[in-house]
Design a protein around this nucleic acid. Structure first.
Lengths: 142, 142
DNA sequence: TTTGCTGCAAATGCTTTGCATGTAG
DNA sequence: CTACATGCAAAGCATTTGCAGCAAA
């Protein structure tokens, strides 16, 4: 149960928060606020879009979820499962893969230090084309 | 004169486009559409904000300028001076520095290849704190 | 009971668009 | 002269906020 997680964050355990957490936990892909809202409606829940945004923002502040801005104005969210990773996005089908490269990570710190900065966080997104037979070569949109 | 640049792109050489190009060329820092609009007004030009956006979008499509999304919904623009670079942003004062690290660049290609992707472009932004005496520790906002 | 949460609708902020006019080529 | 550019105001879209009612602790 994630209820304990919520309580630890000083957040009341409410239906919207539990449901949103469940949806995020069940999803293999990154979801937008609208995506989550739509799923809630499909599940018969009567939860407002504003609440979805509010909850996601709180979860982000609590490091429970991560917010990403891929192409297009819409933000997407994923559950923070602990291990940091960066993303590569297929420009044809929209597929997102995660990766972690220690070399890149450590070089970032080096570069920053050389410039007199102390890195707090970073944002790395690779855009490319996945050369797979099943790549539809056009985004089907979730 | 940049007029020739414009003509080569199939764009008519108009006052708004020349002025916007000049402002971008003269600026050492990244400018938002509003920043540019404000400078145009200060220079006594009567150019609409919508035009600034339209021109910047055309310039971006023509690879004349680059658009970046740092923190906060506002996009910023810089003249494309040829050499690729990434950015590091000070979370305290908003200062932006540019850097290029061949190690990071090449490792990105490796990682992507390993995942079956062919990289077209990427977006790397480091967020940190510049440990300088003159860092105002709070954004003064252009 | 008290503080925090929710839904709704309205507001926001950045960016884009429709349209009538203006102007570069 | 014609196609493309512009200014203005209105629209669009993702996200946030105000407020009155609700519910967890």
């Amino acid at each position: 149960m994630e209820s304990s997680d919520l309580r630890k964050l000083g957040l009341k355990v409410t239906l919207p928060r539990i449901k949103i957490l469940e949806i995020l936990a069940a999803s293999a892909v990154h979801l937008s606020a609208e995506d989550i809202y739509r799923q809630l409606l499909e599940h018969g829940e009567d939860i407002g879009l504003a609440t979805v945004y509010r909850v996601l923002t709180q979860f982000e502040a609590a490091s429970l979820v991560r917010r990403h801005h891929f192409e297009g104005g819409t933000a997407v969210f994923e559950l923070n499962r602990g291990e940091h990773h960066d993303h590569i996005v297929c420009m044809d089908c929209g597929k997102v893969e995660e990766f972690l490269d220690c070399g890149i990570e450590s070089r970032q710190l080096d570069v920053a230090k050389k410039l007199g900065f102390q890195v707090e966080e970073h944002n790395l997104i690779l855009y490319g084309r996945c050369r797979r037979k099943n790549c539809p070569h056009r985004r089907t949109d979730s």
